[in-house]
Design a protein around this nucleic acid. Structure first.
Length: 466
RNA sequence: GGCCCCUUCAUCUAGCGGUCCAGGAUGCAAGGUUUUCAUCCUUGUCACAGGGGUUCGAGUCCCCUAGGGGUCACCA
């Protein structure tokens, strides 16, 4: 049985780095028919927020990850932790330390000045005298004084940290609340977590947690410390490097499976495979295959992946997603043709929305450069003539009808396709570029096409007059 | 700074002592398709950080150097 967990502290949104480790944990549990649990690390009462927990769960929902059992809040379990503190105190494995914060700061400062590593000096470790009055003590755990703490990391291999590097760290604050490294070890043990997959930044917490495991006689889980995601600058990914909030990706028009595919491939691979369905991830994922080195965030590749998944999405799904971008196509009569065209050419859902709006809405302004380039010479006359031709033409419905009309037009006028194409493009969508003109005309219809041509001609006339 | 970890194309990576004058993908460049742009297709571009070992043979193992990252709270 494999039991994994994701244990965020509710201090803000879900970070894409967090989502990656959550995904790894999720995949590993599901692959093995085990359980994936979610625990909220809110022992610091002054920092936790219910809002943040909600955001994390919202992000989980969006990407389609579910967790097993009840959501565990550490703040609900203080009595439990307290009982273990008492136990350690009774067994002499932990002790009260009466040093004040100020004394501690002073000690640290002196050590720094002597260029020593700042650490607690153990002065109350074997203290038996009368405790100083008026001071609420913290509880410290007795860490080994000598030797090495060695553990096997599933990603990095054997890790050795000297006992002298780990001091008697605090397991309960002077207000009685327990601290992170203590409760994590207890919860992981009690929740039956077999595989702890977490960020590299926790590597140094592991020896501390091992001390707790051993003091309490718990069985150690397997540890996997996944390397950080670095920003384009090569430093730890931060807000400055662009979007780090998972839900921002939704707002930017990314598909959750694209994000997941991107994240799973960042630091992990299966041969040359780039595209992974969830089933394929489940089939191939193994945390021991995660790379030991950090990887840099690469937005271009995510965009490419997103384009891939958009192309392969159903029109119905896209129409639903587009509603988040104020485009309501579900019962639009041109839905199929519109989405068939734009899902092939756009990289985000947001981009689809923008480009479809260009087509179905009459342009309200024109790209200046496009006007300059397209409307020179006799472009206005050509457009005018084309509008007249549209009026007198027979049945016009399909893109091929419009295409035939344009071909006939350029043949009659003995001009190149571009002579009518470019100005028409500006008239229809306000800029150069965009999809096939015959598609656009077929979608908006003859009447609207003529109106847009006339609107542009009026605009050009007016701006040349002034 | 101490400690820990890491080091293959610009980026994500394959490679688990010979099959690698290093493969795939993104990006970029060129060409093709397209009335335009995008897509798509083809081709190209680009890397084993440096130095020592070990070995018949090293991208693959060991050491050193350099560089990068992480971490040193009554935060998590």
């Amino acid at each position: 049985m494999v039991v994994t967990r994701f244990a965020p502290s509710p201090t803000g949104y879900l970070h894409i780095g967090g989502l990656r480790t959550a995904l790894y944990s999720y995949l590993w549990a599901r692959k093995n028919g085990g359980e994936f649990k979610l625990r909220i690390e809110d022992t610091d009462l002054s920092r936790n927020s219910a809002e943040a927990t909600k955001k994390i769960i919202e992000a989980f929902d969006w990407v389609g990850m579910d967790y097993d059992g009840e959501l565990v809040y550490q703040s609900d379990r203080f009595d439990l932790y307290k009982s273990y503190i008492v136990k350690l105190l009774d067994e002499g494995k932990a002790y009260r330390c009466y040093m004040t914060k100020e004394e501690l700061d002073k000690l640290r400062e002196e050590q720094m000045q002597r260029k020593e590593r700042p650490r607690y000096d153990g002065r109350y470790r074997d203290f038996t005298g009368e405790p100083p009055a008026g001071i609420e003590p913290v509880i410290r755990i007795k860490a080994p004084l000598e030797g090495d703490i060695v553990f096997e990391d599933g990603i990095k291999g054997s890790i050795t940290i000297r006992a002298s590097e780990v001091d008697d760290f605090i397991i309960a604050r002077s207000d009685g609340t327990p601290t992170y490294n203590f409760v994590v070890a207890i919860d992981d043990a009690l929740m039956g977590i077999t595989d702890v997959i977490r960020g590299d930044d926790h590597l140094y917490n592991t020896p501390k947690q091992i001390i707790v495991y051993e003091a309490l006689g718990f069985k150690l889980p397997r540890f996997y410390h996944v390397p950080m995601i670095l920003g384009p600058s090569g430093k730890k990914l931060s807000k400055r490097d662009g979007a780090t909030d998972v839900m921002e990706y939704k707002a930017m028009g990314y598909l959750p499976e694209a994000l997941l595919n991107f994240l799973v491939r960042l630091g992990w691979s299966h041969g040359d495979q780039e595209i992974f369905t969830l089933d394929e991830m489940l089939e191939h994922f193994d945390p021991t295959d995660i790379n030991a080195s950090a990887s840099q965030y690469n937005p271009d590749k995510l965009l490419w992946l997103n384009a891939h998944y958009i192309k392969n999405s159903s029109n119905e799904r896209l129409a639903k997603l587009l509603e988040d971008f104020d485009l309501y196509l579900l019962s639009h009569d041109k839905r199929e043709i519109l989405l068939d065209i734009f899902k092939e050419r756009c990289k985000t859902v947001k981009e689809i929305a923008e480009q479809i709006k260009e087509v179905i809405e009459t342009p309200s302004n024109y790209d200046e450069k496009a006007i300059k380039k397209a409307m020179k010479g006799s472009a206005d006359e050509i457009l005018e003539t084309f509008a007249r031709k549209l009026e007198t033409a027979g049945e016009l419905h399909l893109p091929t009808d419009y295409h035939a009309l344009m071909e006939e037009f350029v043949r009659e006028k003995e001009i190149g396709f571009g002579k009518i194409g470019m100005p028409l493009r500006v008239a229809l969508i306000g800029r150069l570029g965009g999809p096939e003109l015959s598609d656009v005309m077929s979608i908006i219809g003859r009447k609207e096409t003529i109106e847009r041509i006339e609107k542009l001609l009026t605009f050009v006339k007016e701006s040349s007059a002034s």
